[in-house]
Computed example of a mutant assay.
Amino acid sequence: MNRFRPFMAFALAMLPALAAPALGQTRVGEISTTFRLVGPNDKVVVERYDDPRVANVSCYVSRADTGGLSGWVGLAEDPSRFSIACRATGPVSLPAGLPQTESVFRQSASPLFKALTVTRILDAEKRVLVYLITSTKLVDGSPYNSVTAVPVETAAR
């Protein structure tokens, strides 16, 4: 039992961070997909995340949200099914010091150790920001992913 103590301490310390909503998240809408007799229905949720470091880039994520009794009390594990589309909502320019790869958003997808993560990748050669959404777990991830790209404005010549 003592050998599990460090793991349990880490797990308890991480719970608030995993349950916290991502910054800049706005729920745009939702559609019920499965009727549940007890608790809320299963649904597809659409949320908007504004890139915190690149002005005028908004990412729209659709994801499955498990309902029922376990979903209602917060114990359901949402499936790793999602899609992402990012768009320029105004002029897009690269801020100074933007890293080549950076985790932009993270949202819990289960009570323990599963999260959706959006990573921004800079394609400097083509002047494009690539956004990749994946599902991560403490032990293993998921092969499900989705990708989108937003062009960066080029200077007038």
Rank of each mutant, 00 (worst) to 15 (best):
A76D: 01
K43H: 15
V92L: 03
L75N: 11
G68D: 09
W72D: 03
A88R: 06
D78V: 05
K43E: 15
C86E: 05
V46I: 15
W72G: 04
N41P: 13
S80D: 03
L69F: 04
G90I: 10
L69R: 07
G39V: 09
G68C: 06
S58Y: 02
P40H: 07
V54I: 12
L75G: 11
V73M: 14
N41R: 06
Y60F: 15
S58L: 05
W72E: 07
V57M: 08
G71W: 02
V73T: 15
D50F: 10
A76G: 00
R53F: 09
A88Y: 08
V44C: 04
V54W: 00
K43G: 14
D50V: 13
V44T: 14
G90S: 06
G90V: 09
A76K: 01
T66E: 07
S70T: 15
S80R: 00
N56F: 07
V54H: 03
A85I: 14
I84Q: 00
V38H: 14
S70G: 03
C86Q: 04
R48D: 10
R87W: 11
V46H: 11
C86D: 09
F82P: 00
L69W: 04
V61P: 02
S93M: 12
V92A: 03
V45W: 00
R87I: 13
E47H: 11
D65K: 14
P40F: 10
K43Y: 07
R48L: 10
A55S: 15
S93G: 13
S80T: 01
S58Q: 10
G68K: 11
G67H: 02
G68E: 07
L69A: 05
A64F: 10
V44M: 09
D51N: 08
A55T: 09
A85P: 11
N56Y: 03
D51G: 11
R53E: 15
S93E: 13
D78F: 00
R53C: 08
D50W: 11
S70L: 11
D51C: 08
V92G: 03
G71L: 01
D42V: 00
L94Q: 00
A64E: 09
E77T: 14
D50E: 14
R53Q: 12
Y49E: 08
P52K: 15
G71E: 02
G71K: 01
A55Y: 05
R81D: 04
R87N: 14
K43N: 13
E47D: 14
N56T: 03
G74N: 00
L75K: 09
E77L: 13
S58M: 02
I84M: 00
V38C: 14
C59P: 10
V45N: 04
V44R: 02
P52H: 12
G67M: 08
T89S: 09
F82E: 00
G71H: 02
